[in-house]
């Protein structure tokens, strides 16, 4: 508070309070910072995957787990409104996954991730991926302490989505155009979606993937492995 001193003076008239103590997401941001600190300490790369409902997040993570589950020690946290299904699908691939059932809340909050982490053995883990609730609006505002946010947009959606949901694309490191195996049957233009996304975020990286037809998955996994390596190396610099 800049105009009053709490407890010494009674607030009267109009009190202007343009500072962070009145920031409504401060509780979330505080926990997110704690997560970031913990992940840095343990050198775990934390990825937050977002998209609209059904764009192919779980299928991509299944495919990713099959590819690199044997190369890096990875785990997955999955946010879902009501069910446990997506975590089961990941576990089928042999990778440990934990479901966070949000009970109707349309996004994951840092506090939910923090609590879930307490039920997850993070010893030796190098990569933790969070599948967020399928929704491009609310999850955009909630920092989960991730290193990178990756957003999927499927070819079955509108190629003008980045401008409709600018916050999400502004805060994403990477946009994955998913289900590209269906491109020939759809009016979707990859060029248009990339142009739309780059209007919002000129630096956004783009990969085209199909999890069912095995397209672009190598490039995606390579990017992940490279980022895992970078995160591991920060440790050595610190301890050296």
């Amino acid at each position: 508070m800049d105009k009053i001193q709490k407890s010494t003076k009674t607030a009267r008239g109009t009190v202007t309070c343009d500072n962070t103590t009145m920031h409504l997401l401060k509780a979330n941001d505080f926990v997110a910072a704690s997560i970031r600190e913990k992940m840095t300490e343990k050198n775990i790369l934390l990825i937050n995957i977002t998209s609209s409902a059904g764009s192919g997040k779980t299928t991509l993570l299944q495919e990713t787990a099959r590819r690199i589950g044997g190369k890096v020690n990875m785990k997955v946290l999955v946010g879902d409104l009501e069910t446990e299904r997506d975590a089961d699908r990941i576990r089928e691939t042999g990778v440990d996954a934990l479901q966070i059932v949000t009970g109707g809340i349309c996004h994951l909050e840092a506090q939910m991730v923090w609590q879930a982490m307490e039920n997850l053995n993070l010893e030796g883990v190098e990569l933790l991926i969070i599948e967020n609730v399928g929704n491009l609006v609310c999850p955009a505002s909630f920092d989960l302490g991730e290193d990178y946010r990756v957003t999927l947009i499927a070819t079955t959606e509108g190629d003008d989505k980045p401008k409709k949901y600018p916050r999400m694309f502004l805060t994403s490191e990477m946009m994955l155009v998913s289900k590209v195996d269906l491109l020939e049957h759809l009016p979707f233009s990859v060029e248009a979606v990339v142009a739309d996304a780059r209007d919002v975020n000129p630096n956004i990286k783009v990969l085209e993937v199909s999890s069912t037809k095995n397209m672009g998955i190598d490039a995606w996994c390579e990017w992940l492995l490279e980022k895992v390596k970078e995160k591991q190396n920060t440790k050595k610099e610190v301890t050296a």
Binding site: G13, T14, H23, V200
Partner: peptide
């Protein structure tokens, strides 16, 4: 229109300084 370019030099830019805030600005008593 969510086109993140500098209005004076035309370069792409997403160095946002305002527009993400969500805060209590004033309270009246």
């Amino acid at each position: 229109n969510y086109k993140f370019v500098c209005a004076s030099c035309g370069k792409p830019n997403n160095n946002v300084v305002k527009g993400t805030e969500l805060l209590i600005h004033q309270v009246h008593f």
